[in-house]
Every structure is written in C-alpha cells, then in structure tokens.
Design a protein around this nucleic acid. Sequence first.
DNA 1: CATGAATGAGCTTTCATTCAT
DNA 2: TATGAATGAAAGCTCATTCAT
Lengths: 204, 204, 204, 204
Amino acid sequence: MERQVAAVPRTTDGDGTPVPQRLLAAATRLFAEQGYDRTSVQEIVEAAGVTKGALYHYFGSKDDLLHEVYARVLRIQQERLDAFADADAPVEERLRGAAADVVVTTIDNLDDASIFFRSMHHLSPEKHKQVRAERRRYHERFRALVEEGQKKGVFSTATPADLVVDYHFGSVHHLSTWYRPDGPLTPQQVADHLADLLLRALRP
Amino acid sequence: MERQVAAVPRTTDGDGTPVPQRLLAAATRLFAEQGYDRTSVQEIVEAAGVTKGALYHYFGSKDDLLHEVYARVLRIQQERLDAFADADAPVEERLRGAAADVVVTTIDNLDDASIFFRSMHHLSPEKHKQVRAERRRYHERFRALVEEGQKKGVFSTATPADLVVDYHFGSVHHLSTWYRPDGPLTPQQVADHLADLLLRALRP
Amino acid sequence: MERQVAAVPRTTDGDGTPVPQRLLAAATRLFAEQGYDRTSVQEIVEAAGVTKGALYHYFGSKDDLLHEVYARVLRIQQERLDAFADADAPVEERLRGAAADVVVTTIDNLDDASIFFRSMHHLSPEKHKQVRAERRRYHERFRALVEEGQKKGVFSTATPADLVVDYHFGSVHHLSTWYRPDGPLTPQQVADHLADLLLRALRP
Amino acid sequence: MERQVAAVPRTTDGDGTPVPQRLLAAATRLFAEQGYDRTSVQEIVEAAGVTKGALYHYFGSKDDLLHEVYARVLRIQQERLDAFADADAPVEERLRGAAADVVVTTIDNLDDASIFFRSMHHLSPEKHKQVRAERRRYHERFRALVEEGQKKGVFSTATPADLVVDYHFGSVHHLSTWYRPDGPLTPQQVADHLADLLLRALRP
DNA sequence: CATGAATGAGCTTTCATTCAT
DNA sequence: TATGAATGAAAGCTCATTCAT
C-alpha cells in the first residue's frame, strides 16, 4: 500500500512508468484485443496495476481514455505524413514513400490501428466529431499529393483523387484483419507491394 | 433452439412477415447502427414487436442472431461471386464484373457490411471460426480469378494474388466508413472506379 | 430459488404481498428512516426480499420509486380533503374537520410525511414539477375553504388566505420532527389542538 | 482537526476572506442548493477556491463542516431570541417581536434555514444530539414566553405551550418551501402576518 | 408458441478520506 | 500550511438468460 519512492512523484510500484501512461498502454492493448465495449474498466486498472480511483483521477471517463489513445495515434500519423509530403523529391516518390510508410507504421502498431478502425463509433458524439476532423486533415494532405501528381500529368486522372485515397486507406485499415507477424511477408514487403499497387493504378 | 416451423409460420401481429425474419431484420439494423454490444436484446424484440421469450424460442442466444445475419450475407455474396466467376467471358471481364458487383451490393446493403467488418470478433470462437472458413472460401474464389489472369499473362505478377485480393477488399470494407447515399457518386459509379483501379493496378 | 406457488402469479416467497407493493413498502420505510440519498437500492431490495433486477423490472429508477410513494400519498390526501370540503356542514366545521383530519392521517403515516417534506427535491425536475402541481391542487382546495369563510364573514380577513394555509401546513409538516407516538398526546388530541389554533386565529 | 489560527489567517488567494470562512460560506450555499448528500467535497473546495487538503486541514470531516454551519446559525438565532425575550416590555409585545423576528431572519438566511430543516439527520449521532440540545434550549426559551403570558392571563391556556411553539415553528420551517423573494409580500409583511396569526390564536 | 417476472453478475462512475511531500 | 495522487468501498443501473405458466 505505501510507496517508498522518493524524488519523482509520478513513478510507482515496481514499474518506472508514470501511472497515466501505464493506463494508456493497458487500455490500448485491451481495447485492441477485445474491443472497447468488451473491455471493463476493472480489467484496465488491473492490467495497469492501479485502482479505479487512480484511473478516474487522470481520465474523466472510459471514453476519455479511448480518446487519448486516438489523439496519440493521430498526432504520430499526421507528423509522419507531413514529413513525407514536405520532402524534396518528385511527387511519385513522395506519394510512394507516404503510402508505404503508413503501412509499415500501421503494422508496427496494429493495436492502435485495430482500435482506430473498430472503436471510433464508441466515442461520444463531440469527441467523435473531433477525431473525424483531424482524420479529415490527414485525408486532405494525402489527397493533395495525389492531385499534385494528377496536375503534373504523372498520375492518371481517370479516378477522382478522393476515391484513390479511400482506396488505399481501405487496404491500410484492412491490415489488422489479415496481417500476421508470422506470415510470409515482412511489414516492409507488404508496404512496398501496397504502395506499388497504388502507384501502378495511378499510371497514366 | 428449434428453428423451422411447420407449414407457414404466419405468426405476425399487424405485419405479414414471419417473426424470425422480423427479428433478423430488426437485429441487422440495430447491430449496424449501434454495434453488437450496444444493442440490447430488449431493443431488438421491441423493434420487432415481439417479446424476449419469442426471440429465445427461435434463436438460442444473441450471438446466434448475429451469426444468422452473417450467414445470410455470406450466402448471398458467395452466390453472386460464383455467378460472375463462372461466367463465359475473358478473365479481365469476369474479375472486373465481380470486383464491381461486390461494391454495388455492399453499398446496397451497407448495414450488413457494417456489421460484417465491425462485429465479427463478437461471435463466439466456434462461430467466428465457421464464419472465417466461409469467408476464406470467398477469398479463395476471388484469388483464383486473379491467379488465372496472372497465369494467362493478362495481369501483372508483380504482386502476390493474395495481397491483391486483400487490397481490393480493404476498399470494400472501407465503404461503410465514407460512402454516403447523398454523395456525388452513384453506387455504380463508385463500383466502376474501384474496379478500374484494381484492373489498372494489375496491368502488366 | 424455485417457487412452489401456484395460482396467483404475483405472490412470492414467504410473503403473500405482490413484489411491487413489497418494494414500495420497503422503500417508504427506508426513505423515511434514512432519507432518500442515504438509502441504497441494495438496502431496499434486501428489505423487500427480492433482487435488484426485480426492482428495475417494475420501476424505471430509484427516482421512480420515490415518485410512486408520493403519488400514493397525494391521492389519499386529496381524497380525504375533498370529502371534508364537500360535506354538508357550515364552513367552520368543514375547515376544522379537514384541518384536524390531515393531522391525524399525517401522524398515522409519519413515514410518508417525512418523505414528503424532506425528499421532494430529490425527484427529477419533471417529476418534481408534477408533484408540485398536484400539491398545488391540494393547497387550492384548502384555501378555497378559508376564503369561503372569509367571504361569509365567519373568518377574519386580516390575513391572506394563502398565508393561513401555509401557516397550518407548516405545522403539519413539522409533526414528523417532534411528534412521538409515546408522547403525552394522542394523534386526535394533537389534531384537535392544531385545528383549534387555526380556527382561533381565524376568529374575526 | 485544529481550528483557530494564530494572528490573522489572511491566507487568501484573490480574496480577502480567510480560508475557513470561505469554505463555510461555500458549503452553506451548496448544502442549501443541493442538499448535504448531493454536495461533494470536491465541489465545496472548488467553490471556495482551495484544495481538499486545505479543507481537511481546517475541518475534520464533511460532517464537521455541516456542524459548523449549524453552530453558527444556532448561535445567531439564540442571541436574537434572548434579546427579544429579555426586553423590557409586555409579554405580548415580546412574543410578537420574537415571533416576527425569527421569520424575518429566517427569510434573510433561507439557505441556512433550508439546511437546518433538511439536513439535520445527516449529522453524526453525537453531533445530532448536540444540535438537538441547543435547539431544545431555543424552544424552551420561546415556550417560556408563551407560558408567561398564559400565567398572566393574557394568552389562552386552551393549548399546551409546547404545541403552540411547535405550531409557530412549523410555519417558520415551512418558509423555505414556499417563500419567494419576488413574491407579493416583503419578509417583514410575512413576519407580521405570521406573528399576528400566533397572537390571535392565543387570544383568551 | 409465447409471455414476462425474476435473476445475478457485471458495468461505469463517484466519493470521502489519507498521506507523502 | 497546503497539495493532489491514490485508495477502496459503494453507488445506481443494465443485461442476457431462464423458466413456470
């Protein structure tokens, strides 16, 4: 019950990680494994080694916890996309890089991805709206790359850029359904294949 | 537990539809709207205009109900795919036809699709396995088309057929996330675009 | 667990009273003894010898239960007042009768009264409003008696009738604070005294 | 646990009021508005602009806080009653003055009154007993006035003095139920009417 | 066939209080 | 003096399922 820790106040028990992060990590894993509704607050706090009171000290609700998981993932993904899109390279290379990167990072964080594409509707309406707005920003950035290539004539204009983006992201979302770490392909190989399919589909 | 009733189970209140179908329809709609976990048995029976006893007379459990929803969709989709694949036409046309058709029928039954790609993990392990097995059959049939084209040299062999199939179905699953009936594109137009993207990606 | 009772379906366990009434009685007693907030649903169902599920089968919420208690009391009191007010007698006698009767019945049902004057603000806003409306009807009826006497000149008009009514009912509400069954006065004696004070105050 | 601070506990943030008083004021308002049980310690400290630790530094418990509220009100009321009762005037005037004054001060401090007549049972048994004892002193003083008048023959002896006192205080308690500052009567007018009713009822 | 009363376990959330700093 | 993280118990409520009729 008592804690002997000195200096750093946010360090607990037998673990060096701050409580909020421990909770977030436990929640992420459990939400991904069992889904939001099937995961009880009790399970989360047990996995994090704290009590319910502690969880509600840091997070306003179970819903809040889910939102935090989202916020973290969104931020990371947006940063990576921006880096690729802003690079100094031909648009084909930038699009290919971004398209492949989102596959690799999605596979590297399949838990986050599962939650993303399965649990968004569990958020409260306002939080849902907020996440959708950020998601939209991401989509727009990706679409701008496609449109840039179409304007420059290096990509076919046969398909609206919006649809192209949804086509690719559909396959990204789908990864959590079929990808298995012990399968025949490494994340990078999958990423290269999917990026290749996208670029081939965009050939003029 | 028992299912099939004798002659004509016209046990309906103000409606001409048999009770089991009414329950199935209500469950499909509610599962799609709110998700499996968020939908209570009470809501289902109220929407169907019957009582809980009636539901448990026809279905062994809530889980059973979800399984029935799946079974119906799976059967329909498999039938349609088989029809396209067995047609007497060049493989490009057959694949294009099947790829476009699954988009149109998915859009026409977005409720079913939502359930499919969101609620599968809510099934009991054995039912889940069963559904995955049938799902696999569907996947195999589609893959066979791709491989046939690859062997004949009309499709590129740059990408493993399995990946191609998952690429396309990712976008199909994704439809329920972004497609809106009041959007700028008709289901057929979306279908043509997505099939076109697939076929373009497969160009040698 | 099993119940061997035959015929009457609403009869349970070792007691002949229907479950909803048992719950209502238990809730009434506990709310009066401990207050609404201090009484847990668990205590109520234990006192009634049923489970929580049963309570929520019959009542939508704890708040609902309180409202039912109110509804019963309000109905009874209104009926009694109407009977006295409609009697064929001089207005002094009718007022005295009603004023004394409400004292006696309040003492006879001190539990109900305690709840009434202590827990009304625990009702949801809409239910609160509803109770206040019915309460108002009661007040009006009583005031009409006072005004009738004032018009006829048998009561003083020095004090507005509204205030007179509140004066008397204040003392009625107050009963649950000080009246003890083992005190020196019988309910009827208290009632006669209080009615007498009212009538004396109204002497022209 | 400890209470009195040394010199001047001007420990205030943007406000010149000492912390304990700020807490007491916040608690008084919130208890009156929402009731004791519905008011959380968190709400109180937020309203007072301090933290929980501060509250528990000055008060041993939430219950303590309620008790302090009571103590303050009791002291004030007793002082006022004593002043009226000890005045040099005929007993009718002294009783009328006291009876009217308690009405005015009750209306002027409706929050305190609400708490008084609603939350007394929330005190711990020992504190409850203590408050009742002080309350009793108040009652006795008031009764003594009535009895003095009865002995002198200026008040009717038809009703036991105890009952008379409870009759009047019932109406005082009741004020918080019906009195509205924006109503047709000023506090003084209400007080005069209620004192008048009392005196009229006591006419021999 | 169908009812609906009843169960019992589980849910999220709230809260007064403690205590190391 | 004062903080605020953390506790642990309890709260109101929901729900899939059973079963006598």
